[in-house]
């Protein structure tokens, strides 16, 4: 059961500011989503080894070579604020 406390916790971690109404709404919606996902528990997985990945790929890597960098104006193109060649962000508390 999802509670309003769970929603507040997740919202804080995601830096989301929610109104009381939104908290109520998301509590209901998340609860419904998780309940729906319970369907998966009906599968018998006793003989299936746990895995973190579904692809059969293994050991994909590259050699240690330096490639091209992004030109400075493109690096900062999406930055909401800049100063010189830096990204500028609000004070971190």
């Amino acid at each position: 059961m999802i509670t309003i406390k769970d929603v507040e916790h997740v919202a804080l971690l995601a830096r989301l500011e929610l109104s009381e109404e939104e908290k109520q709404m998301y509590t209901k919606q998340l609860d419904a989503i998780l309940e729906y996902a319970q369907v998966l528990n009906e599968l018998d997985t006793d003989d299936v080894p746990p895995t973190a990945h579904v692809l059969h790929l293994r050991n994909v890597w590259r050699e240690d070579e330096v490639g091209e960098h992004l030109p400075p104006d493109e690096v900062l193109a999406n930055a909401p604020e800049t100063e010189g060649q830096f990204f500028k962000v609000p004070r971190i508390v």
């Binding site: 330096v66 490639g67 960098h69 992004l70 690096v75 900062l76 010189g84 060649q85 830096f86």
Partner: peptide, 17 residues
């Protein structure tokens, strides 16, 4: 990624997507 690890470059010059 293939960006350089060199220490002390100009800010945000050793970066890629």
């Amino acid at each position: 990624c293939p960006s350089s690890t060199e220490f002390g470059g100009d800010p945000n010059t050793h970066v890629c997507p």
